[in-house]
Design a protein around this nucleic acid. Structure first.
Length: 542
DNA sequence: TTGCAGTCAATATC
DNA sequence: GATATTGACTGCAA
């Protein structure tokens, strides 16, 4: 609590008492890398000699491997901290160099992690956590991250991808060896890196590792070695298993996370993964469009109607929101680089990437929805009225939330009130109380087959334009709104486009973009709604 | 308590 | 076989 308070409402130095300054000194030292982890004498004793107590904390850090990071497996990676306490001013500098320059010390592979492939088991206890940036970076990775200068996450991932593909190195190997992440995470990270400033300290870690790895002149070599070793181990295992007539072990080499319980038991214990049917996803997406933050009641209903567990619905919304947010990030990046100096290569390339994701129903629900027709003509209609409609949420409707949303989002879209499915499409709704909303039942799952797309788009469709409009509060912050006043819906599109550097034309068909925007809008709206319902005076920084 | 970030890991897709 | 997608989970912050 104290920390939270201090971080959010720091007092000016001059107003702090000696004691009050202590935490700041600690923070500064920590930022400078002079304060390692260790047990802080919380309260008490350290009184007077603030610095004294603080300095005493250095020790733990300098001793060899830092903990959390390095896996116990092999101690090899824990080289003693070569560089001890850096002076505050220097620390940052050296760190910068460390991260930005060739870093021979990054001993990514070998000992750092999965020990000999031949004995994969070792790793399973701690599947993740590998790597050890050892060598001169005896600083814990967290410290490196904390002190790291802003990194170009997009550029880093781009380079990593290049190196990996050029050398025919897989994500799995790279992830497990260098990042301590699983293949899926790596894939995700490489495909959709978040901008540095949007990352938490933890989220920055993989990027710092990647940067360090890129700086390592022997990076590829090391990874290749690992690859070879894995292969060797695999063959070895295969042989032995065959000869032992053992049920074949999972083919994956290296880190064998599947170890532990016998495969069979494991299998039985595992609960099957839920796989949502396309219709279910559609329904959820539609529900999302209506209400990105459904109330528990709505969730219940959705779950019931879709015959899903409420937790599944909840998770779905969480994941969806979060993924959409991420998509937006990339778009921002792309737009940014695009906009800038012709942003050479990358941008274009990326755009390609994005699109795909959006099309699929990956996360962009929103998108999926609106997509379609270039010209924006979505076939929206399709009102499904359909039966299947998961009636989403009657209940919700009342939720204050909607109003705001509609108030904003909808306006644009709808010139057509009421649209078929009643999805909120509505005209600009008045104030919060807006119970008015038409209950937009959860979209019908059964969207008319007709042009699926179209169908899907239905809802969104109606809002397509809106999507664009969705105005991104968040974004706006990033980009000066070139335009329109917050409430000028009509103009939104253009402003967004400019924000994203999307040519009008392109924008029209660039569904993905719009979708994201729509999603973003939803989120913003939700907040607004919340605020509205609370009647809290809120200052929005758009 | 709620929402989110970051991940894992199963599954789908290429 | 490698990579992409995605439901679920953990931990943290507000």
């Amino acid at each position: 609590g104290s920390v939270s308070d201090m971080l959010s409402r720091p007092k000016p130095w001059s107003k702090l008492t000696q004691k009050g300054r202590e935490p700041f000194i600690r923070m500064q030292l920590w930022l400078n890398g002079e304060l390692g982890q260790g047990v802080l004498p919380v309260q008490g004793q350290q009184q007077g000699p603030v610095l004294h107590s603080v300095t005493s904390l250095q020790d733990p850090l300098q001793q060899g491997c830092v903990s959390s990071e390095s896996t116990p497996k092999t101690s090899a990676s824990c080289s003693p901290a070569p560089e001890s306490p850096m002076s505050s001013s220097e620390s940052v500098k050296s760190l910068t160099e460390l991260v930005q320059q060739p870093c021979p010390a990054i001993e990514t592979s070998k000992e750092g992690k999965p020990p000999e492939p031949s004995d994969p088991p070792a790793s399973d206890s701690q599947p993740t956590t590998p790597l050890p940036l050892s060598g001169h970076s005896a600083l814990s990775i967290q410290e490196l991250v904390a002190m790291s200068p802003e990194l170009d996450t997009y550029g880093i991932t781009k380079r990593v991808k290049e190196v990996l593909t050029d050398n025919n190195l897989g994500q799995r190997l790279f992830g497990e060896t260098i990042l301590g992440l699983t293949q899926g995470s790596v894939s995700d990270l490489l495909a959709r890196p978040k901008p540095w400033h949007k990352l938490s300290l933890k989220g920055r870690e993989p990027f710092v590792r990647m940067q360090l790895w890129l700086n390592d002149p022997n990076n590829v070599e090391k990874l290749m070695d690992m690859k070879r070793m894995e292969k060797k181990a695999y063959m070895k295992r295969r042989h032995s298993s065959v000869s032992d007539s053992q049920p074949c072990e999972p083919p994956s080499v290296g880190i064998d996370y599947s170890q532990g319980a016998s495969p069979q038991t494991q299998h039985q214990l595992k609960k099957p993964r839920v796989v949502l049917a396309p219709e279910e996803k559609e329904a959820l997406k539609r529900a999302y469009q209506q209400k990105p933050y459904p109330s528990p009641k709505t969730i219940e209903e959705l779950a019931t109607q879709l015959n899903l567990k409420t937790s599944t619905v909840i998770n779905w919304f969480h994941n969806y929101r979060s993924r959409i947010r991420r998509e937006l990030f990339i778009e921002e990046i792309q737009a940014g680089s695009q906009g800038q100096a012709g942003a050479s290569d990358s941008p274009s390339a990326r755009s390609g990437r994005i699109a795909p994701s959006s099309e699929g129903d990956s996360c962009d629900g929103v998108e999926a929805a609106d997509v379609e027709e270039p010209g924006g003509t979505t076939v929206a209609t399709k009102s499904q009225g359909g039966p299947a409609e998961v009636a989403a949420a009657p209940a919700d409707q009342e939720e204050a939330t909607q109003p705001a949303e509609k108030a904003k989002a909808q306006p644009l879209s709808s010139a057509t009130p009421g649209q078929d499915n009643g999805e909120d499409v509505g005209q600009p709704r008045p104030p919060p109380e807006g119970l008015t909303d038409t209950p937009a039942p959860v979209p019908n799952l059964a969207a008319p087959a007709a042009g699926e797309d179209a169908a899907t788009s239905a809802t969104a469709a109606t809002e397509v334009p809106g999507a664009a409009r969705a105005g991104p509060a968040e974004r706006s912050s990033a980009l000066p709104s070139t335009s329109a006043p917050a409430n000028a819906p009509a103009r939104r599109p253009s402003s967004l486009q400019s924000l994203f550097g999307l040519p009008e034309a392109a924008g029209a068909r660039d569904n993905p973009v719009r979708k994201k925007k729509a999603a973003n809008l939803n989120s913003i709206i939700h907040r607004l709604e919340k605020a509205a319902s609370r009647e809290e005076p809120i200052e929005w920084e758009f």
